[in-house]
């Protein structure tokens, strides 16, 4: 057996084929991205352990991720917030974790996407299970998992083929195999879903430029929102409100401050929200019972006409504008403090 020769051949072919694979995907318009996985979330969650009462923690669903830009916030206040929002999620499990498992007494900004905030308290329901799984992961993660993540980041930042995206944009073998269709034995009503955001190490997320420039791309995402909108169960206002108010009371009692923010939506999504979750019955009632500072985009002239390219999230440029203006309003209102020294 000529094992040395075998090794040399294997090594050479591996380098060539992997290089060609990377080159091919780059030529198809893919580029290196970081995955918004549990460990990335955990690296931000751990910051809350040592956060002071001057710190701000952001939580909510994808609208807080897309619409609140950390650089702009830091520019306005001198403090970089901690981003704990999770896509497609209720903020309640994360807020509950912060209230119950930390001594944090700073400010928590909670994004109110009515369809998710008031969705459920059932542990197995997706809007609850997703963020809860991140919370559980954070509390149980091993040193090996932390080390794996630290080692994977430089690779994720440099190789496009290592994308963890799922669905139509997925490049992992599992995703590529999953795209192969032979007939349709079982109908799959879910429209193809494109990834339309890119996240940084500190979980600052921006909408991809293609979502703004390519109408077809944006339209494909609108179809997904319509799909979810049609199948959405009615809100569970009673239990979600009760759950939130219990945690809020405890958090306020120890000196913590909460801000509620309703980020912009437009087009069909906003229409659906207005019909299924009318502001008066849902959001206004929450603000009334919570008795905390609250900001609804409809109440401010500068936000009223912001258009979301795919109806639910702001473009990177609009998100920067929204953050800057929102923070200015909140500083003026005394909800947030400006710690800048000059």
């Amino acid at each position: 057996m000529y094992l040395k020769q075998t090794l040399i051949i294997a090594f050479t072919l591996s380098v060539i084929s992997l290089g060609a694979w990377e080159f091919y995907w780059r030529s198809q318009g893919f580029y290196p991205t970081i995955d918004d996985n549990k460990e990335l979330w955990a690296t931000q969650r751990v910051r809350v352990e040592n956060a002071t009462n001057k710190d701000v923690v952001l939580m909510g669903s994808s609208r807080v991720l897309f619409d609140i830009q950390l650089n702009e916030w830091e520019n306005e206040t001198g403090k970089r917030p901690i981003q704990l929002a999770c896509v497609g999620s209720s903020p309640l499990p994360v807020f509950h974790d912060i209230v119950e498992k930390t001594n944090f007494t700073g400010t928590v900004l909670i994004g109110v996407t009515p369809g998710l905030f008031f969705s459920t308290t059932f542990p197995k329901a997706q809007p609850w299970e997703w963020p809860q799984s991140r919370v559980d992961y954070y509390h149980k993660r091993t040193y090996a998992q932390r080390l794996n993540h630290a080692l994977s980041l430089p690779l994720q930042e440099n190789f496009a083929f290592l994308s963890e995206d799922e669905g139509v944009d997925g490049l992992k073998l599992k995703e590529l195999v999953g795209k192969i269709k032979v007939g349709e034995r079982v109908p799959d009503p879910m429209p193809p879903f494109h990834e339309f955001g890119e996240i940084a190490n500190d979980r600052n997320l921006k909408m991809k430029a293609i979502t703004v420039t390519d109408t077809a791309y944006a339209n494909s995402i609108k179809k997904v929102w319509m799909f979810f909108g049609k199948g959405a169960p009615p809100p569970d206002k009673k239990s979600t409100m009760a759950f939130f108010l219990t945690d809020l009371k405890k958090f306020k009692a120890r000196g913590g401050k909460v801000i509620l923010v309703r980020c912009p939506s437009s087009g069909g999504v906003r229409m659906g929200e207005n019909i299924g979750l009318p502001r008066k019955d849902i959001y206004d009632d929450l603000v009334r019972q919570a008795r905390v500072k609250a900001y609804h985009f409809e109440d401010y002239d500068q936000f009223k006409n912001l258009e979301c390219p795919e109806w639910s999230h702001l473009s990177a440029t609009d998100a920067q504008f929204f953050t800057t203006e929102l923070v200015k309003i909140m500083i003026k209102d005394g909800a947030v403090t400006n710690y800048k020294t000059n």
Binding site: M1, I9, A10, S14, S17
Partner: peptide, 18 residues
């Protein structure tokens, strides 16, 4: 060695892609 090397490289490529 060529066949074994090709199989080895193929397995490595699929591991990396997976």
């Amino acid at each position: 060695p060529w066949a074994l090397g090709i199989i080895w490289a193929f397995m490595f490529l699929l591991i990396a892609i997976a």
